[in-house]
C-alpha cells in the first residue's frame, strides 16, 4: 500500500527568473518503508520535504500523505508527520528538556503524559544526563539529537529526516542511523534525504536519485545499480596524485567511467575487469605511478549517479 504518493511536483522560487528547485517530481513511498532522496547540494531535496510538510505550496502537482492532499488538507497532513529540519531549529537559550516540553505542547500534549513521553525521548536520543543544560552548551551532535527528538514526541506515523547527519562525529552518526532503523522497525514510514551514498545504501528500502530539481531514477538499490549495465567496479589506490592518470584511463576502451581521484583513491566502472587490469598497470607505470591497492566490487550508487549525470555525487 502506498503511504505517500507524489505526482508531478513543481516549485520555482521567485518566478519567472528564479531557480526551478523541483521540476515535475513523482515518486511513491510504501507504508513502513524507508525511502531516501539522494542528491548533491541544490538538488531540490529540502524543497521537496518542505512541500510534503505543507510549508511551501507547489506551483504544480500534488502529493498525498496518508491519503490526504498536502495542498487541500494541510491540517490533516500535519497531524500525521514529524519533521527533522536540515538546520537545527531549537531554542538555544532553553534546556534540552524545556525544548522537548515546549514542542510537545505545540503538538497538543500536556501533563503527566507529556512528561513521560519527554523522558522516553530523552532516553531514546541518549541525553538523559544533559537534559537540564542549555542547548547552546551542547555539542553539534547533541543538538542534532534534540532536533530529532523534538520531531518524535507525538509518535508520528510519517517521519521526514532532512540530512540529519551533516557535520557530526562518526559515533553520533552511527547512533542516528541506528535510531532511524529502530523507528522504522516499530512501524514508522521514513523519508530520508542525504548526499551520502553510504547512508542511502545502508538505510533504504528504496531510493530516489535527484539532481537539479529532477528525479532522475527511483528504485531499490539493486534496480538502480542495474541501470549501469553489466559492469564491475575496480577500486584502487595510487601512491601519488592521479589526475592525469584518471584522464588517460577514461580514454581506454571498455572503461565507462572513472571517479574523480580522492587522495590517490579512485574507482573505475568497467566492462571486463580481467581484460582491463593489465592495461591499468601499464598506464600507471608510464607516468611513474604505482598501484598500491586494487580490488573488484559490485557497482554502487555513486556509479549510478555518474552514469546518469556524467558528474560525481560529491563535487
Amino acid at each position: 500500500m502506498e503511504a505517500i504518493v507524489v505526482e508531478g511536483l513543481r516549485k520555482q522560487f521567485d518566478p519567472p527568473k528564479g531557480p526551478v528547485a523541483v521540476d515535475t517530481v513523482s515518486f511513491q513511498i510504501g507504508e513502513g518503508e524507508i525511502f531516501s532522496l539522494l542528491g548533491p547540494n541544490g538538488a531540490g531535496k529540502t524543497t521537496t520535504i518542505s512541500i510534503l510538510s505543507c510549508l511551501l505550496r507547489p506551483d504544480g502537482g500534488d502529493a498525498r500523505v496518508g491519503g490526504f492532499s498536502v495542498t487541500r488538507e494541510p491540517e490533516k497532513v500535519k497531524a500525521l508527520i514529524g519533521v527533522v529540519p536540515q538546520d537545527i531549529a531549537l531554542y538555544e537559550d532553553m534546556s534540552g528538556r524545556e525544548n522537548l516540553l515546549f514542542w510537545g505542547r505545540m503538538y497538543g500534549m500536556s501533563g503527566a503524559a507529556l512528561n513521560k513521553r519527554v523522558d522516553e525521548v530523552l532516553e531514546l536520543i541518549g541525553l538523559v544526563d544533559r537534559q537540564k543544560d542549555r542547548v547552546d552548551k551542547y555539542s553539534g551532535g547533541m543538538k542534532r539529537r534534540v532536533n530529532i527528538g523534538a520531531a518524535l514526541l507525538h509518535n508520528p506515523r510519517f517521519l521526514y529526516f532532512d540530512e540529519p547527519t551533516v557535520g557530526i562525529d562518526p559515533q553520533s552518526r552511527r547512533s542516528i542511523l541506528d535510531g532511524v532503523k529502530d523507528l522504522n522497525a516499530s512501524g514508522v514510514t521514513v523519508l530520508y534525504t542525504t548526499h551520502y551514498m553510504e547512508e542511502a545504501q545502508e538505510l533504504s528500502h528504496r531510493i530516489g536519485i535527484m539532481d537539479k530539481g529532477a528525479m532522475i531514477a527511483t528504485g531499490t538499490q539493486d534496480e538502480l545499480v542495474r541501470l549501469v549495465g553489466e559492469r564491475t567496479r575496480i577500486d584502487l589506490t595510487l601512491d601519488r596524485e592521479a589526475e592525469t592518470l584518471a584522464a588517460r584511463w577514461r580514454e581506454l576502451p571498455g572503461v565507462s567511467s572513472v571517479s574523480a581521484p580522492d587522495d590517490g583513491s579512485m574507482w573505475l566502472s568497467v566492462q571486463d575487469a580481467n581484460v582491463l587490469m593489465p592495461k591499468l598497470f601499464d598506464g600507471a607505470r608510464a607516468v611513474g605511478a604505482r598501484i598500491i591497492e586494487i580490488s573488484l566490487a559490485e557497482p554502487n550508487l555513486e556509479m549510478v549517479f555518474l552514469h546518469l549525470t556524467g558528474r560525481a555525487l560529491r563535487d
Partner: peptide
C-alpha cells in the same frame, strides 16, 4: 531565520 516559525507551522500552530 532559524526555522523555528516553520517548525511551529508544521506542528499545526
Amino acid at each position: 531565520r532559524r526555522g523555528l516559525l516553520q517548525r511551529l507551522s508544521i506542528a499545526g500552530v
